[in-house]
């Protein structure tokens, strides 16, 4: 049955009321985006979840084993316990370090300084340089025999004999954290600086009239002024730091004796050196609930910042 021209037009109106007036073009333009999100993000995430219920070896079909991988991780894998405590310590110390040093950088650049833009760009270099380059360079600087860090510490009499930084557990973890902090503090610095520059100068002027000390001004004006950007930056950095791979993998490979293994490096090792893909995936999917909570808490804050 042919539809009359009038009926066709009416149907179009109904559809456009339901879906919005630009529906046809709108959907057409987001098709490629949808394909990427479905094919390269949603599908891999779901297949990761399914894989984590399987015993899957490299090059072999999988076998369904239910929650066995998770049970092994949580109750029988002592290495995983080390990975969890390493990751928590690594993330807490690194993020705190980046936050403090970044805050210092922001306060510094928020002063009246000549050529501020140049200094801001300059201090951003560690964040701009490729992470694999940073990891290689710091591995070389922390070298146990010829590293410049040992050389400098001995030159200034801090230590008397070289330390094998990456060769023993505690110092290796310190070294990868230091590297991570060096790489990440500028991100806090420039974000917080942008937040500080949005604080109206009158607030500081009024506080000065009232005789507020620099510390009081920081505590009562600066800190509340940068609160949102501080929360967003910290949460973003926490997600990134917790999932760090490159720095640890290049500097220590997770060693010595598992002292620096994190979730991502352990997952990689189990998957590609140990060929247990199902178990490897379970190592990262076990974090998914935590990750989703963090992302859900973070997105509205970023969306709000975007609209302002």
């Amino acid at each position: 049955m042919e539809l009359s021209a009038r009926e066709v037009k009416q149907r179009r109106i109904v559809w456009s009321r339901l879906l919005g007036k630009d529906a046809a073009l709108g959907y057409a333009l987001i098709v490629p985006l949808l394909l990427v999100i479905i094919g390269l993000l949603a599908y891999p995430i779901i297949s990761a979840l399914l894989l984590s219920f399987q015993d899957r070896r490299l090059g072999l079909p999988g076998r369904f084993i239910g929650l066995e991988n998770y049970a092994e991780l949580l109750f029988r894998d002592r290495r995983f316990r080390t990975v969890v405590s390493n990751s928590i310590l690594f993330t807490l110390v690194s993020v705190a370090g980046k936050l403090l040093i970044g805050m210092g950088m922001a306060i510094l650049l928020n002063q009246r300084i000549k050529a501020r833009a140049m200094f801001r760009g300059w201090l951003l270099l560690p964040w701009v340089a490729p992470t694999f380059v940073t990891a290689l360079t710091w591995r070389w600087m922390f070298d146990g025999t010829s590293g410049i860090i040992n050389y400098l510490l001995m030159l200034f009499g801090v230590i008397t004999s070289p330390i094998a930084w990456l060769g023993n557990g505690a110092t290796a973890l310190l070294a990868v954290m230091a590297t991570n902090i060096w790489r990440g503090f500028p991100f806090f610095g420039v974000s917080l600086l942008a937040g500080m520059q949005a604080i109206p100068a009158e607030l500081y002027e009024a506080a000065e009239v009232d005789g507020a000390s620099p510390w009081q001004k920081f505590w009562h004006i600066t800190l509340p002024g940068v609160r949102t950007v501080l929360v967003v930056t910290t949460m973003l950095s926490t997600i990134w730091t917790f999932n760090d791979f490159q720095i640890v993998w290049i500097m220590t490979g997770g060693g010595p004796a598992f002292a620096t293994h994190l979730f991502a490096t352990y997952s990689y090792q189990v998957g590609f050196s140990g060929s247990r893909l199902g178990y490897a995936v379970a190592i990262s999917t076990i974090l998914a609930p935590l990750l989703i909570v963090m992302i859900l808490a973070l997105s509205p804050l970023i969306m709000r910042g975007e609209r302002e």
């Binding site: 999100i37 390269l40 993000l41 599908y43 891999p44 995430i45 297949s47 990761a48 894989l51 973003l236 997600i239 990134w240 917790f242 999932n243 791979f245 979730f263 991502a264 997952s267 990689y268 998957g271 893909l277 490897a280 995936v281 990262s284 999917t285 974090l287 998914a288 990750l291 992302i295 973070l298 997105s299």
Partner: peptide, 17 residues
């Protein structure tokens, strides 16, 4: 949301794909 999903969650399934 997808921008915030870390690569460490995706690399094994992407490898298999």
């Amino acid at each position: 949301f997808t921008y915030l999903v870390p690569g460490s969650l995706l690399f094994i399934p992407l490898f298999l794909i």
